[in-house]
Design a protein around this nucleic acid. Structure first.
Lengths: 247, 247
DNA sequence: GCTGTATGGTAGCCTGGCAACCTGGCAGTC
DNA sequence: GACTGCCAGGTTGCCAGGCTACCATACAGC
């Protein structure tokens, strides 16, 4: 049997809702520089009629763009293009079964996690080490994906930079199903979860010792190992720091 | 006179709009695990009455949470908690004048850009090199912040990973004012823009030569240099890979 | 046991409207 | 002439109500 073969019939693509279309249109308009920075947009009434949608739909779209930092609105005055039209949000497409998407997201995770490990080694406090050790223990006892996520989250927290926490949370959340499947299938792979736990332990030791370079390399080794275990080719070019056989 | 001294009176904090409050409340509710994963939420009518807001306000909030991947809705059926409740969006707070926020964002940029440089060196094609060279030329001729942004964007494009492009765009957009000010004030700093251009050129050569490790180090050197030039202490711990002078 | 159908419920979308607020200009004052 | 206070028009924030397309479930029919 082919256990982890996703059925070929994926969820049918639905027609985009009106709100989504309006969001995309306005975003494109702003990105194309159609409105100058900090320029005022037409009033909601006018915009809704020119776009041919009701004001409520337009307002839902505007709310999203305001939340993304693309637009700002001042009550009684109008809606303006933000001073930072690129926005303040970074979105990932839903990573479904497509291996290409998966590889791209994993690649990002590789650099986020290696960077976090490097920083964490330099800044970790005793509480961070306790958290890491607890996650490691849980992993050894039950070997669950939850402990894996907790471990990596603890590294992000140890960086003392909240953005790393948010980024790692986002990426591990997106890869959650994959990670869970990985732990379940780990038993079948030669080496099984033993490799994963060994890699985590090495990463923990490197962070504890306070050696940023060692932590980076341990994280890199772990992530390339994880990619290999669930059959992800970090293809095209080495995402590994060196062409050597690893240390 | 004190040209770049921001007036002490910043923009007054406005009371959060109803929509923002509803978004925050629902997000917290989901994050707290109040609703199980993939569970159905109460109907919009019911939710709006329990929250004490109109349905239009609730819908604007739901639209944001759907865009963030926290919720999904099926017409005719209901609104459900997403399978990935952590969402698919990563948000940065508006980086104003606070140096602490600036340092955090810049730290993230450091790792995004060094990673992108490493990947770019392995995957760059001839078109990428042309773009990089053009940006470098523009930088030498006019030394503008725009050329700087174009250069770093070209590196992200060369990774052939669209997420790197999005992330670099986001971060450089957020740091835009700072970067622009940096170029304007560069003339006053000893070394001036000469250092910046030299660093960019070195990074370009490393990417052209196809050596990922060299590209990473060149990017690291450039970013630490940039941080130093505009008086940003990448404090607490070294953000540089090694204490040595490089390999 | 399976298939088709009726029914209640739900989200998507629209119309219309009111209050709070902002902006620009005007009259009045020093 | 410069400044202050005020007014009117325009704009966003928020609300109420309603209609349609769609979904899920139960039920009748085969």
């Amino acid at each position: 049997m082919q256990p982890d073969k996703v059925p070929a019939l994926a969820a049918l693509p639905r027609p985009a809702s009106l709100v989504e279309q309006v969001v995309a249109a306005l975003r494109a308009e702003v990105a194309a520089g159609r409105f100058a920075r900090t320029a005022r947009l037409p009033a909601e009434q006018a915009l809704s009629t020119t776009l041919g949608v009701s004001r409520t739909v337009l307002r839902e779209a505007l709310a999203q763009l305001k939340a993304d930092g693309v637009l700002v609105s001042r009550k009684g005055s109008g809606v303006y293009v933000s001073a930072t039209p690129a926005g303040n949000a970074f979105r990932l497409p839903a990573v479904g079964g497509e291996p290409e998407r998966l590889r791209e997201v994993f690649e990002l995770r590789y650099y986020a996690e290696t960077g976090a490990a490097e920083l964490a080694a330099a800044r970790r406090g005793p509480a961070d080490l306790r958290r890491l050790q607890a996650a490691l223990r849980a992993m050894r006892a039950r070997g669950a994906a939850a402990a894996d996520a907790a471990f990596h989250r603890a590294i992000a927290v140890a960086t003392q930079n909240p953005h790393f926490v948010a980024l790692v949370d986002l990426l591990s959340g997106q890869l959650h199903q994959v990670i869970a499947a990985s732990w379940e299938n780990a038993a079948r792979v030669a080496g099984g979860p033993r490799d994963a736990i060994r890699e985590h332990a090495a990463l923990y030791r490197a962070i504890r010792s306070g050696d940023p370079a060692a932590a980076r390399e341990a994280a890199a080794a772990h992530l390339t190992g994880a990619a290999r275990r669930w059959g992800l080719a970090l293809g095209g070019a080495p995402a590994r720091p060196r062409r050597g056989s690893g240390r």
